[in-house]
Simulated scan of single mutants.
Amino acid sequence: MYSLWYPETEKDFFEKSLELTTKEQLFYKTEDNRYLAYWPKKYSGKKSTLQSRNAFIGNYTEKMVVNLLQNFAKSNNLFVLQGVICEELGLTSRSPADVAFCKTNNTVQKAENIKLIIEVKMSVVWNWEYINGELILVGDYSSHQGTPGLLRSDSMLKAIGKAINIRVSGNASSDIPIVILGNTPIQKSYIKKVDHLKKAGIVQGFWSLNPKPKENETLEMTPKKGFIRMNAYEDFVSYLNELISHDFFFFSSMKSKKELGQIIEICNQEDDFEEKGHKFLELIGD
């Protein structure tokens, strides 16, 4: 059974993390001594910031994605790895790829061996109370003051910035798809932006692994599929398979209509579509 992101997944995160650290590192403490994952909507007491949970949820979600995709990777003769470094792509030890499909089982990779990059932007979605050693589900993200996952503008901007950094690192990144993986919907203000980013080839999609992040229906897909909510594991691997089973090539340029016309004219002299495409990419980069 392959599970996406559900309340049970989140509960497992807290249970495993509590084996490694204290409740104070994972929960906010209210004035009346309640330990909560987020400040409730109506809470107006004294507040503090909680940065310590970020490292735990980041590591947990990356490992969760790796485990979720192990069999899929094997079926495609690939390795799915956490924390992949590739200097050619600007992926350093300080800022590696969260998860990547690779041809070899090494975290330090050559660009030619990387088939797909996944940036994981997942966080705690629901509100939980930790009381007497038990985890109680308090409510979905509409019940608390937090802004989890892809709903956070800074998370979106960091993901976009990293994707752009990979793309502008050089031609080595041009045939590697990039997916941003979250566990929430996106804000309405990002609907056109994610579709444009997909159309421009910067990223191949912002995907959520959370089929039901709150009781009311949430965004399932943007018009151009820049954002997609995965409702089942089969949906997830189907979209992934589409990315790794085709040869893609990112290109970006600004040329006059005359230059473009000349390039198209030259390309039309080639014998077939693939040769025309190859010639176009060659000329557009000059």
Score class of each variant (00 low, 15 high):
Asn132Tyr: 01
Ala111Asp: 03
Asp98Met: 07
Glu62Asp: 09
Leu135Met: 10
Glu112Asn: 13
Lys121Gly: 03
Met64Pro: 00
Leu69Gly: 11
Thr104Ser: 08
Val84Asn: 00
Val179Gly: 05
Gly146Leu: 03
Ala159Arg: 01
Leu151Lys: 09
Thr184Val: 13
Thr147Tyr: 08
Lys103Gly: 13
Ile117Tyr: 07
Gly133Thr: 01
Lys63His: 13
Ile136Tyr: 11
Ala100Ile: 06
Leu135Asp: 09
Gly170Pro: 11
Leu68Ile: 06
Glu134Ser: 13
Asn71Gln: 15
Met64Ser: 10
Trp126Glu: 08
Asn127Gln: 08
Gly182Pro: 00
Thr107Pro: 00
Val66Gly: 03
Leu89His: 04
Asn77Trp: 10
Glu112Thr: 15
Asn71Lys: 12
Glu134Thr: 10
Ile117Val: 14
Val84Ala: 11
Leu157Tyr: 10
His144Gly: 09
Phe79Ala: 01
Ile178Gly: 13
Asn132Asp: 02
Ile178Arg: 08
Gly139Leu: 12
Val99Gln: 07
Leu137Ser: 12
Gly90Phe: 07
Asn106Trp: 13
Leu91Ser: 05
Val125Pro: 08
Val120Leu: 14
Thr147Leu: 12
Gly139Ile: 02
Ala73His: 02
Ile178Ser: 02
Ser153Lys: 13
Lys158Tyr: 07
Thr61Lys: 02
Ser142His: 05
Val108Ile: 14
Ile118Tyr: 00
Thr61Glu: 05
Leu116Asn: 09
Lys63Tyr: 10
Ile160Lys: 14
Cys86Pro: 03
Phe79Gln: 00
Asn76Ala: 01
Leu91Pro: 00
Ile166Cys: 08
Ser123Glu: 08
Leu89Pro: 11
Val138Ala: 08
Lys103Pro: 00
Lys192Leu: 14
Gly146Thr: 00
Glu134Pro: 11
Gln70His: 06
Val108Pro: 00
Ile136Thr: 09
Val84Thr: 06
Ile186Arg: 09
Val65Trp: 06
Thr184Tyr: 08
Thr92Met: 05
Ile117Gln: 00
Gln145Gly: 09
Trp128Val: 02
Ile166Lys: 06
Pro185Ser: 12
Asn71Tyr: 13
Asn67Ser: 14
Val168Arg: 15
Cys102Val: 08
Gly90Ala: 04
Ser123Pro: 07
Gln187Pro: 02
Ile191Cys: 07
Val138Ile: 15
Leu89Glu: 03
Cys86Asp: 01
Ser169Val: 07
Glu88Asp: 14
Asn127Ser: 14
Val99Ser: 02
Cys86Thr: 12
Ala163Pro: 14
Asn77Thr: 12
Asn77Phe: 12
Lys188Arg: 15
Cys86Lys: 03
Thr61Trp: 12
Thr92Gln: 12
Thr61Tyr: 15
Trp126Lys: 01
Lys192Asn: 15
Lys158Pro: 00
Thr61Ala: 15
Ala97Met: 01
Leu150Val: 06
Val65Ser: 09
Met156Phe: 15
Val179Glu: 01
Leu151Met: 15
Asn165Glu: 09
Glu62Ser: 04
Tyr130Gln: 02
Lys192Thr: 06
Glu129Ile: 02
Asp154Tyr: 10
Ser173Leu: 04
Ala172Tyr: 04
Ile131Cys: 05
Lys110Trp: 03
Met122Tyr: 09
